[in-house]
Amino acid sequence: MRTVTLAAVAGLLATTGAHAAEPLDLVGPVSDYKLFVSEQTDLLVDETEAFVAAVKAGEVEKAKALFAPTRQHYEMIEPIAELFSDLDVAIDSRADDYEKAEADPAFPGFHRIEYGLWEHNSTEGLDPVADQLLTNVKDLQGRIESLPFPPEVVVGGAAVLMEEVAATKISGEEDRYSHTDLWDFKGNFDGSQKIVELVKPLIADQDPAFIKQIDANFEVIDVTLAKYEEGDGYVTYDKLTDQDRIKLAAAVNALAEDLSTLRGKLGLD
């Protein structure tokens, strides 16, 4: 973790004598972020409609093809989507959250459908799950619209997305039936990078070394992921080489560490 130590030193040097951004400087970035989240949520609703229609029509292959791109929008807006605990559970919880895992009748949402599509190669019994998913995604859209975004959540979201990848995704456990994890990663990375882009102007002068390091790690991620592109998306997760997994993990861990200081740098701790 040499890079992290260097970053900490650079950060210390840079913050000495530098002044924190004024609180109201964040109004622009937070509102631009809401516009971004709102766009992604609209796409999530549209694409979930198509995905649910395919599930209900029993079109297994089509539903499989729509699963990953649809979820990607949810992954992109996760810092906000996760604020609604009831919907997050209903839309994106995993079998581990339930006592009887996959067999638990309460296991809902994207991953329940994923399980049916890939493990049973079937849409049988998924109609009510699919209907409920669409209802929940629309409910999410309405709630996001009426929520003033807390700036701490927006700025903190850049690190949260990276921590999630580092802690619970790099292992391939998120999309364990479909192995479409790289699509989710891309969503998480893009969501994090969007936040960084929006607040960057507020810290660039004060902390150029910090920005440089973050950009370098995002670059590593972009280059590594690009090797696995296929069509409009990505190959399955098992195709990722150990070497690239280590490379990704290192960049993601470094970003998670660095970005966790963003809130403090912007006076939001």
């Binding site: 964040l26 975004f149 700036p151």
Partner: peptide, 18 residues
Amino acid sequence: PEMRTFIGPLAEYRVYLN
């Protein structure tokens, strides 16, 4: 309220105006 308390409301209004 502290100044930071108004970031959310002002951002929300900026979204509305835009």
